[in-house]
Design a protein around this nucleic acid. Sequence first.
DNA 1: CAGTGGTCTAGACCACGCC
DNA 2: GCGTGGTCTAGACCACTGG
Lengths: 242, 242
Amino acid sequence: MPIYRDIQAELLRRISTGIWPTGTTIPHETALAAEFDCTRTTIGRALRELASAGLIERKRKAGTKVIARSGRDAIVTISPVREEVRAAGQDYGYALVARDQGKAPEAVRAAMGLSARDTVLHVQCLHFADGQPHQFEDRWINLATVPAAKGQSFEEISPNEWLIREVPYSRARHVFRAARPAEQERNTLRLAPDEWVFVVERVTWLEASAITYARLLHPADRFQLITRDPEAMRQSPPPSAE
Amino acid sequence: MPIYRDIQAELLRRISTGIWPTGTTIPHETALAAEFDCTRTTIGRALRELASAGLIERKRKAGTKVIARSGRDAIVTISPVREEVRAAGQDYGYALVARDQGKAPEAVRAAMGLSARDTVLHVQCLHFADGQPHQFEDRWINLATVPAAKGQSFEEISPNEWLIREVPYSRARHVFRAARPAEQERNTLRLAPDEWVFVVERVTWLEASAITYARLLHPADRFQLITRDPEAMRQSPPPSAE
DNA sequence: CAGTGGTCTAGACCACGCC
DNA sequence: GCGTGGTCTAGACCACTGG
């Protein structure tokens, strides 16, 4: 175990056991370096990660303080549908529902920050798990950013997977909510009469230009999102909740 | 701007523009240090953050490769209800519904990893936004870990806020899903006849011992969770999606 | 303006894991 | 084995900001 990890663990212990309660100004880097018998660089590394994890706040001259974590961060990993289904030990299936090029509706333009004259590709498709509809993907792709999408039929590969391959990096924003399904959605997903859908909305950007906006609808009766703690320091893994 | 940020930006550019497509092995730290005329330490810092952001993968001897970001991480910040309501510009209200000490039901014991003889405190309460029910909090507190909870009536302060104050730092696991409300929940939250609830489930631990298990129920018609990107490198802030 | 964190260097040794 | 990343040192200068 690297030294800076040991130091992190010890500092974390002092915070979590109340030795350094919220608001405490902890010793300077120099003092800590002396205590742990290492260089200030190493202390700095340990503290930097604690700071980015939101446990402490560092200000020049003012020093380092333990801050109140009023909000809790949770990390949701949103895997491609295929992997998600496979990971659950189910068979994956895919079907294209519709593909259409043109103008985006106002709501989509707003979400993607497009002007009225931008053209987009609208793709609707369905992902199956063991033959059951698992996710309805309703997606708009900005053709200005990803012109290559024009040449893709999306009959064999889902826009989801194709985009992952095509666009190496992007920034994303997600919204999670539950909603009443529209008629088409209810039928396509074969929902129970009173069943709602769990919606994951996602907008991604490449640098400053929008790539795609997607609404991913799941039968709410058999879907949930599980999060993990913001990692950074993994010392005592949380006991498996099963 | 620090040098390592400049380097990150340049490397990011090479990745996002396809100069280094997915799968590329990029130059060694030593080579990059020569190119950018700095030390290997500085290159290492730049690369370390790109790696933790999931853009590259580093292996000794094998080198550093650009990887496909199949899964996208999103960070959800779950604020205390009071703050959440206040942030929305609404009036916050609180009411205790029930408080009861005893054994936990099997499902709760399993989630918290408790044995059959552990005693827990069961608290139900309601949070209001502008007089409307906003969240129904159904919570179990492990009295072995937080004995001080026995002395709290929770008539004035919600368990949520009290625990944040009481337990300095802890680890959490969340589950998000949508569910049909039980009869009591439907009435308490004054839901529309067909309305579902958006459920946030949370288990928190202090080190290895469970602190609390909570089910936070929201009227699905007026609730959503918004995520932000895993930070690390903030260069071009995402265009505001409004 | 003085103390604190932020960054960087030049070098070193080590540990992992392909070949 | 041996090349690569992982960590650490000892020191330096700088930038911010609170007193």
